[in-house]
Write a protein that binds this DNA or RNA. Structure first.
Lengths: 220, 220
DNA sequence: GTCTATAATCAGATAGAC
DNA sequence: GTCTATCTGATTATAGAC
């Protein structure tokens, strides 16, 4: 079946281009990666790249679609998981991994929306949808007597959770020159976010969280 | 005295170029601003721009020098002020204003160090120097019984203070589409950082801080 | 699907007259 | 100091053979 073979090859080259582009964009930013460099890294000819993506922007938008799909998937699974704090740690961990995998989107955001303005709307929609379960978790914990925060403090806390959980990745990348996300980095990020919650926790919740981090350490 | 006049004009054109470039860089990022656009916005010819700055990078580095000088000045004055909490609010306010004024440096950091690698070292040195007085303030407050944090929590707190106080500007710029820094934005950023401290404060310190923010409000 | 060759554009930078 | 004219190089994108 030559038809099936042809099609499989096509998908494969396309996916390979996406993977190679993503790696290069994360490394240097989309503006500092040329189509010639992408083609070379992918082992194909530059002209051939334009067979798969009519423009460079189409390639970037395709990568953004995948980012969006990864978030959709995460949120779908989270809706099933409910407000269990353990599930929330897993949720945040996966969010961190997604942000890291597509970190150029946050790091080079300004340049991206300059040529693709609709990205501003789309990335803000994603931000809002991620924020929701976090707010819900806090409200659940508060209702269960595990957390003590005023409405005002809750609002500030949510903003800070968002800033830290998004930009710690950029911070590692840009300020610390981290090139590969190791487990220790993820743990560091989670610890930073946990430390935002910690002073607001009641005694039982604090004990539970301490138990969690010890379990994490022993499972390394 | 034609000589003095000539010299005054030269400085003025140069300063004007710097001011115009900074505005454009903050608006769109240095990569998306051409030397032609800078010259046009400054009302001079493109060729003339190269009389003042041999390369575009020299222009960027000159702006960075000014950023560094502004931080030096802030730190010099802080050393005189000591560990008074009121002085610390003033310190942080001015730091926020500086970060806002040169926000493209943090927002487009990756692109900048790609063409000027020494900037990574220099911006990290600045970060470290800003971090010092913050740590000292917290340690003073702890010694005075105004704050209750373990060594471990203090470390995490310092990192979060750094992340929030650096990236709240990018957050406003990128996520909220804020184009001009108003007093309300500065207050918002300060409130976000204050909310990192708040849950660690002892009762007397909390009362003092509440008094401060009310004083701020009534002085608007 | 993949390649070669090339068009079209545009940015950064220089030379030299005024 | 400031301008006009121009060059060089890089980058996105297309046409068309294989």
């Amino acid at each position: 079946m030559p038809r099936a073979k042809r099609r499989r090859k096509a998908v494969s080259t396309r996916d390979h281009l996406i993977a190679v582009s993503l790696a290069l964009f994360n490394e240097r930013g989309p503006d500092r990666v040329t189509t010639a460099q992408i083609a070379e890294a992918a082992g194909i000819n530059e002209g051939n790249l334009y067979y798969y993506f009519k423009t460079k922007q189409a390639l970037i938008l395709t990568i953004f679609d995948r980012f969006e799909a990864a978030v959709d998937d995460l949120l779908d699974r989270d809706r099933a998981a409910g407000a269990d704090p353990a599930a929330y740690v897993a949720f945040l961990t996966e969010w961190f991994e997604i942000v890291w995998r597509y970190r150029f989107l946050y790091r080079d955001f300004m340049g991206l929306i300059a040529t693709a303005p609709e990205l501003r709307r789309r990335i803000r929609a994603i931000s809002d949808r991620i924020r929701d379960p976090v707010r819900q978790l806090i409200e659940h914990m508060r209702a269960a007597g595990l957390m003590d925060v005023s409405d005002e403090a809750l609002d500030a806390l949510l903003h800070n959770v968002w800033i830290v959980s998004t930009y710690w990745v950029v911070y590692l990348d840009v300020q610390e020159g981290v090139r590969a996300l190791k487990k220790s980095h993820l743990e560091w990020g989670l610890k930073q976010v946990a430390s935002l919650f910690q002073p607001h926790l009641s005694e039982p919740a604090r004990h539970w969280l301490d138990g969690q981090s010890e379990a994490d350490r022993s499972s390394v």
